[in-house]
Every structure is written in structure tokens, then in C-alpha cells.
Design a protein around this nucleic acid. Structure first.
Lengths: 379, 379
DNA sequence: CCAAATAACTGTAACGTTTTAGTATTTAGG
DNA sequence: CCTAAATACTAAAACGTTACAGTTATTTGG
């Protein structure tokens, strides 16, 4: 148990005020005189080294002394100076979250951050955001972190089956965990949602509703989970002897409007699907709009199964829109925990998780008062 | 112009590889041998001091020397060591974003982060997230940042009219900018959306649609913009001689479900409103659901005007749902710029902005194919 | 009783940077 | 020609921390 050492915004209570509220400071941002090891050394009459060791329970310090030092440290509200530690040890106490700011699976960013913060609270770790845009090379932020040593660990999102960032981080020995798997023969920590199961369940659900011709709004090509979701979808179709309606013009990356338009076209064209599996909340919404613009009624002419983030937006969105939830908050929580474990030496092979939230339940029209009373199940 | 000094993930291109890809490192996260001032000093045959000064264009270094030093620095990919700088100067090159993780005005977090990152790219600043939950004292993260001097500047969200965090930061001389104004006689940097104008416009729009009895889904009590929005709403009602329908059971803080339920009740009760102003996208969605559950049709029995974040979700959501956009990305961009300006010495009074996106346009039913062709304007 | 081992503590150096107070060398002023 | 000032450069110290190599006392064991 790091006791006093545990620093960070979520750490044990703040010290009683350091002193008087000093009006001016020499350097921006620094509270005037915060206690250092020297302060404690002076107060206890011990050497700086002794204090340092006592605080981290070194074996060659007397028990009584440790107690004394810790007491004083707590009293004066000692918090180790991050810059000092970092300079000396190279340890940054920083986890870097690298994210594609343009990607916005609705609640993803905030939920993920929330989860990560939850894990990091009470540890000395800070969360630093290292975003990049699509115009940049995705390698940029990764290289930056490694080259400048600006973090002890990294969390990656939007993972690709063959992801150069993963190779780079692995080669450079930087601890990292990815949201999503890879397929490149590198053993690394990851947290993934079982998109295959999701798609499979979605198909089963639609099959149960009597649907025969299904379309999938899939993630953009290249991401690992694109394959997973497609596999699950196709296997599901096979299992239930249903037909696929190809839809390649849009992916989850497209805007709601674009998806809506694509779905409208699809539904208005020849041989439209009677069931749609949407890989994200945005796609689900877009699909609804598109179907409506084509003059169709969800739950009657077609049903949709959509994924949504833990931010519960879709559940009550439309009848005929069935929802399976992926919990990004949990993902963030777990990813952070994995990175911390890596840093502490846990082997990556023990830090691989695939989760699945469980099956969705087909929702009936009765959940939606304003709709015509007509069961969505076609027996 | 900080040239070479400009560090950060968005900085000029990375150095050509430091050396061979070393497999093991002494300390996690550090690339093996990255160049320091000492390296450059050795290479140029100059003293460390000279190099340091040359890189920051000190006046007492010869022009030729500066050129030489900068060239070498660029060649070896020199990046100042953050810990060194921070230890020596107290400067962290960090901006801390303090946010209530439970608050989730749909795109807020990610949009804001995107904006902030945009400003910070190309500067040496990193963005550190310091979240807190409702169970904590909102002062905790603020105190933490000040006491540990862990940032050069702070961005606050969910600002209150009388906000102890603002007082604290001001008293301790920590540069900060708030998203939203305060009313406590402290001059500080802020970026605010003109919620009074928003509500006023929303009312005008509903008045133009012939609506007479309006309800407002307002922010939770205590936040500054709650007052603004209410004022705008009430003034608008006055101007158009409309009536207010009180709605106090829910605020923007409530979940979509809770809002939907409250609106359903409201619409089913005596004297229901025929127009609703929703202060956030979530509230707008909830209001739609609630109205539908009460068996009403948007655009016919009632109209709704909702705010939404720049993440364009509502525009095509329902007919009768009119949208006014608040751009959180711009807010983040501006807030970050303001904090940087503060750090560089710009007085806070010059860093106060209220923006307004402009009026919404009443949307007609014809935008929505599946709806009965019936104009939403009641002449 | 002395050597060796143990326990408890400490000084020095170093991490990379900037600031302070310099030292040479050249130029200008009288 | 000598002093004063300007120019170009630099060594040393310090920021707070930890690793390393000690240094005392005290205890053990032969």
C-alpha cells in the first residue's frame, strides 16, 4: 500500500492549508511553499535520504522512525514533487490516452474517460490526452509519447487488425493496452467487446422477429472489429438461413445524415432489407431516419437492432429499434487497470479480455404508447 | 516564435530516429538516449548554458552561434525535457481540464476536448484531465491542482453564479477560464454561450408558430446559465404575451427517461403547454419521447425548440423539433486560447466572450417525408 | 575480548533545466 | 594608451527526488 506516496486528484484528503493565502507567486501555478522531503527532514531532524526511504517503507529504516516520518508527512500534507520524481526516475506517473478526435461513437470519449479516471483515482497517475486528427499520421502521437517518454503507459482506441502503432509500442517496450484486438502475432493487453456475438445475437433477434433479408451497417474497413462484426453477421445469417443485403456505401464513420440517406436509398431500391443491424448508436439513429424518409414504419416493414454506448439514448428512441449495449465506461476502467498492471509487471498475455453484455430482448410496440397497437413480432 | 522549443504532440515533425531500436530500457517509458542540452553542447563544443540560451534566442548569444545550435538541435531532434524544465522553473506546460464526469450534455466532453486540443496543438502544452464525480467536493480537483502546482492553467466547466472554485483559483493566482459566467464581482476569463438569446429566440420561434403556452426544461438550479436561460425565456414570453407553464420536477441534469416521463405527465395533465424549450439535446429528445408517449404529435399539438451540441444529432430527429446549435468545439478552442493568453499576461478583462450562434429557422413538416403533409406553421 | 555482522541512518551525486554571477575578449571613449 | 563598456560565452548552483556507497553504533559469535 502506497500510503502517503499515493498522489493524484483522487488521493486521500488534502493537507490542511499550507500557510497564509499568499497573493503573489514567483512562478505561475505553484502554490508558494509546499513541503518537500527537505521540510520533513528538517522537522524530524533526520536526513533527506532517510525521509525518502521511510515514506516508501524501505527495509533499512526503523519502524518507529517510519511512523514518525509518515505522521509528519501527513500533517504537513506532503506530496512528492512530480517533476523531481520524473527527472530522477524517468517515471512520469502519466497514462496517455490516444484518441482520434473525429471518431465519435456517441458516448465513447466521455464514457471511456470516465472509466479510466475511475481506475486512476487514488493512484498517482494522471490522465493526459494525446489526440490526433485524421489529417495526421496516426503514428505521430504514439511516436511522440515514446520519443519524449511522456507517459508510463498508453491506451489506444480504434485498433486495426494490422496496427503499426501496436508494433511500434511493442518494439519500444512501452506498456500499452488497446481497445480492440489485433491480428499480427503480437501478444499485448487489450479489452474488446465481442462484436461477433453482438452481430450474431442481433441477427438471431431479427430472425426471431421473422425477418429474412438483413443489412449490416458495419465499421469502416481496416479496424479489427469490422471483421468480427461481419463474421458474426454472416454466421448468424447462415445459422438462420437468412439473406444478406449488401450495404457498402456507408460505414459507422459516416455522419448520421449520410447513413440516413444511404438507408433511404437502400429501402427505396429493389429488394430492400427487412432488418438492419447497426453497429453504433449513430448508425441506429441514421437507419431510423432513413427508413422513415423512405416512408417505412419501424416494427412493421422492418426492424433494426442497434448497438449503443452505455449512455442510454436509444432505448426509447423508436419502436422497432432494438438495442444491445456496449459499456465504454467499463472498457475504460478495464483498459486503465490493464495498463497499470503492465507497468507493475503483469505479463500481457494475462491481460486480454473480451466482454459481451448479453442478449438484447426484442421490444414490443406496447412500450411505445403513441404507436398503433400492433405487435412487432411477426409469428 | 518558439522554434525548436515548441514541444508537444502537435509540434513540428519528429526527429529522425534517435538510434537503434533498443529492446530494453532501464526505466519504463523512456526512449533510451534522447538528446539533452548536454548532447548539443558537446556536439557544438559550446557550454550547456550557451546552448540553452541560444535555443531561446537570448540577446547575449551571437547570431551565428544561434543558427548553429538550432541546426544541430533540429538535426538530433532535441526536445526539452519536461521534468527538467518543470523542476527548474515550476512551469508545467500543462492545462488542466476539470470536469464533472457525470454531466453529459451529449457531445460536450468530446467536442470540448477536441477544441482544446486544437488550440494546444503546436504549443508545448499538454492537456490533463482532472475529473470529479458528484460524490466528491467540486473543490477537490481545484485544490489539488493549485496545491501541487500540477498545471499552469485551468479550464472549468459547469460554472455557478457564485462559484467557490472561481474564488479559490482567483485568490491563488492560478490562471483559469470558465465555460460560463459568474456573478461574484471577480473579473476572470470566460467563454459563454448566450443562453438568454437562445431562450428568447426559442420563444420567438414558438410564438411565430402560433404557440401560446410554453414550458422550459431548464438547467439545474445554481448554474449561472440557468438564470440566463430563464431570463431569456421569461422576457420572450413577455414580449410575445405568452404564458409560462411551470416545470420544476426535472432539469437538464436528469436522464432522458426522467425528462420524458416528466413531459408525459405534464402533457397529460391539465393545461398542458403547446410549446417546449429544451435547454439541451438530451432534454429535447426526452421531450419528444414524453410528448409521443402522451399521444401527441410534434408539429401538430405542440412544437419543441431544443439546443444541441455541434454534434448534429437532433436536426433530423423529429418534425416539430427545432434546433439551435451551441458549438462546444469552438468553446473549447476559445477557452484554451484564453488560458494561454492569461499565462502570457493578457489581463482577464480582455478575455471575456459571449457567443451566440444565431437564430434557428422554423422547420416545416415537408422536411420529413414520412409525416403527413401538413405545415407546422399555424397561420 | 575482538572480529564480523547487522541495524539504522546519512552524504554525495545525478537526472535536465535555467538563473546568477561571472570571465574573457573586443570595441569605444577620452 | 588606458579605462569603460559592450559582446560572447560559461561555471556553478539550484529545483526535488532517488540510487549508491558509506558511516556509525550495536549486536553476535567464536
Amino acid at each position: 500500500m502506497k500510503d502517503i506516496q499515493a498522489e493524484g486528484p483522487g488521493a486521500p484528503d488534502a493537507a490542511p492549508e499550507t500557510g497564509k493565502p499568499q497573493a503573489q507567486r514567483k512562478i505561475a501555478g505553484a502554490g508558494d511553499q509546499r513541503p518537500t522531503l527537505k521540510t520533513i527532514a528538517f522537522m524530524t531532524g533526520l536526513g533527506i535520504t532517510t525521509v525518502s526511504k521511510a515514506l516508501k517503507d524501505a527495509p533499512d529504516i526503523g519502524e518507529a522512525t517510519k511512523q514518525r516520518v509518515k505522521l509528519v508527512a501527513k500533517q504537513v500534507g506532503y506530496r512528492p514533487n512530480r517533476a523531481g520524481v520524473r527527472l530522477r526516475t524517468g517515471r512520469t506517473n502519466v497514462i496517455s490516452l490516444i484518441l482520434d478526435t473525429e471518431e465519435e461513437i456517441i458516448g465513447l470519449t466521455s464514457q471511456m474517460i470516465q472509466g479510466i479516471s475511475e481506475t486512476l483515482a487514488g493512484t498517482p497517475y494522471h490522465l493526459v490526452l494525446t489526440p490526433y486528427t485524421r489529417r495526421q499520421d496516426p503514428m505521430d502521437p504514439v511516436r511522440y509519447v515514446v520519443e519524449t517518454g511522456s507517459a508510463d503507459g498508453v491506451i489506444l482506441s480504434t485498433t486495426r487488425a494490422d496496427d503499426p502503432r501496436v508494433r511500434y509500442l511493442d518494439e519500444h517496450g512501452m506498456p500499452f493496452a488497446t481497445h480492440g484486438r489485433t491480428q499480427m502475432g503480437i501478444t499485448h493487453a487489450f479489452h474488446d467487446y465481442d462484436n461477433e456475438a453482438f452481430a450474431g445475437d442481433a441477427v438471431s433477434l431479427l430472425a426471431g422477429l421473422g425477418r429474412k433479408r438483413l443489412a449490416l451497417i458495419a465499421p469502416p474497413a481496416g479496424l479489427t472489429y469490422t471483421r468480427h462484426m461481419q463474421d458474426g453477421f454472416l454466421n448468424g445469417l447462415n445459422d438462420h438461413s437468412l439473406h444478406a443485403v449488401p450495404l457498402t456505401s456507408v460505414s459507422l464513420q459516416n455522419s448520421i445524415q449520410e447513413i440516413a440517406e444511404a438507408i433511404r436509398k437502400l429501402m427505396s431500391g429493389p429488394n430492400p432489407p427487412d432488418g438492419i443491424v447497426a453497429g453504433s448508436a449513430g448508425a441506429g439513429i441514421g437507419a431510423c431516419f432513413g427508413a422513415e424518409q423512405a416512408g417505412l414504419c419501424l416494427g412493421r416493414e422492418l426492424d433494426i437492432v442497434s448497438k449503443q454506448s452505455s449512455f442510454d439514448l436509444l432505448t426509447w428512441f423508436r419502436p422497432g429499434l432494438n438495442v444491445i449495449t456496449e459499456n465504454f465506461r467499463e472498457a475504460g476502467k478495464d483498459l486503465a487497470a490493464k495498463v497499470l498492471a503492465l507497468i507493475e509487471g503483469t505479463p500481457a498475455k494475462d491481460l486480454q479480455t473480451v466482454v459481451y453484455s448479453g442478449r438484447a430482448i426484442a421490444r414490443t410496440q406496447s412500450d411505445h404508447l403513441p404507436q398503433p397497437a400492433q405487435p412487432s413480432q411477426i409469428p
